[in-house]
Amino acid sequence: METPINIQTTPRRIRQLLNSQFGRFAMVGAAATGFQYLLLILLAELTPLNTVACSALAFTISALFNYLANYYLTFQSDKCHLETLSRFTVTAIIGLCINTLVFYCAELIMPHYLLSQCVATVITLISNFLLHKYWIYK
């Protein structure tokens, strides 16, 4: 038996999620991922680059937005940018390696590059959150 959705508490639950650190991280990540996918599509459709290179480039460009939004919105860090940006760069390189490797492998079996990117995004999300939370901004 399914639990019915309580319409009156749904907005409160959404506010609670957005007020949580993981909720903000997910929102920033969704915005950065949307930007990454837009860049991926533009690069894949409008340049002669192969899709693996397009994915890696789109990931790299969207990482700057991700850094700034997480610094100010998600983790509200008071550490200096010199310290956090250097740690973020290491994390972004790790994320780029995971993203590119998973994208490459998924593209071998997936029928479209966007599906491959979806698989790479899900796998990269977990490592990125843990590195952000416990290393970059603390």
Rank of each mutant, 00 (worst) to 15 (best):
I41D: 08
S62T: 05
N70H: 06
Q21M: 10
Y67Q: 11
L85E: 13
V52Q: 06
N66S: 14
A32Q: 07
T47H: 11
T51C: 06
T74A: 06
F25G: 00
P48V: 10
C80S: 15
R15N: 06
C80G: 10
R13L: 15
L17R: 01
D78M: 13
L38H: 01
L64I: 10
N50E: 12
F65M: 12
Y67S: 06
F22Q: 04
F65A: 12
N66A: 07
S86P: 05
T47D: 13
A44P: 00
Q21G: 01
L18Y: 06
A26K: 02
L68V: 02
S20G: 12
Q76N: 14
L64F: 13
Y71K: 10
F35I: 05
L82K: 12
L43D: 15
S55K: 06
L17D: 11
Y71N: 10
N19R: 09
L85M: 08
R87E: 09
R15Q: 15
F35R: 04
L68H: 05
P48H: 06
R13I: 09
L39D: 04
A56G: 13
A44H: 03
T74C: 03
S62A: 14
C54P: 03
L82Y: 00
G34T: 05
F59M: 03
L42F: 08
L64C: 13
A26P: 08
T47E: 10
Q76H: 14
T74V: 03
G34C: 05
L64E: 13
Y67F: 12
Q76G: 10
A44G: 09
T60F: 10
L43P: 04
A63C: 14
L85Q: 14
L39N: 08
N50Q: 11
A63H: 03
L38E: 09
G34L: 00
F65I: 13
P11S: 15
G29W: 07
L43F: 15
A31H: 01
Q76F: 08
A30C: 04
Q16T: 02
Q76D: 13
T84W: 07
F22T: 01
V52L: 02
L57K: 11
Y71G: 01
I14R: 05
E45M: 03
A26V: 00
E83I: 12
C80K: 06
Q36W: 05
L43V: 05
K79Y: 06
C54S: 15
L38G: 08
K79I: 03
E83P: 03
F35W: 10
F75E: 07
G34M: 02
T74S: 13
L39T: 05
L73A: 07
Y72L: 08
F22N: 08
L49G: 02
N70L: 01
L39W: 00
K79Q: 13
L85V: 11
A69Y: 07
S62V: 07
Q36P: 00
R15L: 12
S55Q: 06
L46S: 02
L38C: 02
A63D: 11
F65D: 08
N66F: 01
F75G: 01
A58I: 00
G29P: 01
C80Q: 14
C54W: 06
S86E: 13
L43S: 09
